[in-house]
Design a protein around this nucleic acid. Structure first.
Lengths: 184, 184
DNA sequence: TTGACTAGGCTAACTGTGTTAGCCACATCG
DNA sequence: CGATGTGGCTAACACAGTTAGCCTAGTCAA
């Protein structure tokens, strides 16, 4: 998600049907029980096979996670692009933030996987990150405001997912305060 | 780091001398080679003992990590408090952000450990988080602006640590853009 | 001085993790 | 018919955290 210059939506990586089933099962585990539950043995069991058989379809666990990250970035990127595109230019920033918040909190485990820790860019479609972050550049004007806005949005989401805000927090109002700050 | 009402600096947790040596060695591993290098066997080896002996001083690996997190939050909290206290109220926001950025990037592995993922609050001194985040409330005025500002700062730092910005990014200017947005 | 207790080490071993080597059954197709 | 590719299997390895049980040296009270 690095807002740079104009980038087209990159092509999805090719997957065999069986691999697609494996990735789908992995995503189900991730969504249901979190990344620490996503073990090769658990995944294999859900598929009705044994763990070593997974390596007929995936080279690594890292490659499997990269597939999940790819899907997450495509889904989120689509949501952000459509949020920024829809009506007119006015209000694009608010719509972008709403879309960012809702699409990330809808699948918190996917979001955390896709946006935390080091990213194996060599396992992802080239340009995917840049394309997904594109809407921020559109909504914020300059590159710097775009990155600052993204930092704010990511901070909000990841801190909420990781349960870092006090229980009594009114995060709606915090989002509004941030949006107001960046609205000029 | 949850800015709420006024909180005093909590007391450090008590540690036996030997435990303090263990924690210090763990911090050295963390700083040098990252959290994934911090294994019980590696830590024991650095101390010249065997892994099971560590359990004479620490109940869990989680408790060990909690000790590292505690130290990180105290260090960072002190830096933030002193940044906000120093001269006058004017410019407190800019000084706070500078202190946040520099003190976190000074020890990126500590910062990531302390601020990412679920926090075992039951293993930390009560009130530590709130005290450490206190300066944000002072600098931002309202609770909501405080949380939004913290989200921005955390997003900036963690995305830089995790290498999520494009290589050509001028993060100085991005920080300035964010600071300007929150300055009103 | 002796005995109890504590601190702090040790080895052996268990479970769960990712992963590899090597084998085997079946389908497809020249 | 036979070759080849697909997709399973078992056995096994290295390394993770962790536990049980044992041993040694020091401290300290009776």
């Amino acid at each position: 998600m690095l807002p740079t210059e104009q980038t087209a939506r990159p092509p999805r990586s090719g997957r065999t049907p069986r691999l697609q089933q494996v990735v789908a099962a992995a995503q189900a585990v991730l969504d249901a029980d979190g990344i620490e539950a996503l073990t090769m043995r658990r995944l294999a069991e859900d598929l009705g096979i044994k763990a070593p058989s997974l390596y007929k379809h995936v080279s690594d666990k890292a490659a499997l996670e990269a597939a999940l990250i790819e899907d997450a970035l495509f889904t989120m990127g689509d949501a952000l692009h459509s949020a920024v595109r829809t009506p007119g230019r006015a209000g694009a920033l608010a719509r972008l933030l709403r879309a960012y918040r809702s699409s990330s909190l809808e699948h918190p485990n996917r979001y955390r996987l896709a946006t935390s820790g080091q990213l194996r860019r060599d396992l992802l479609p080239e340009g995917l990150e840049g394309w997904a972050g594109q809407p921020f550049l559109f909504a914020a004007g300059t590159r710097f405001r775009s990155q600052a806005l993204w930092s704010f949005a990511h901070g909000m989401v990841i801190l909420e997912i990781d349960d870092r805000y006090p229980a009594e927090s009114d995060l709606d109002r915090t989002w509004k305060a941030g949006a107001a700050a960046f609205a000029h």
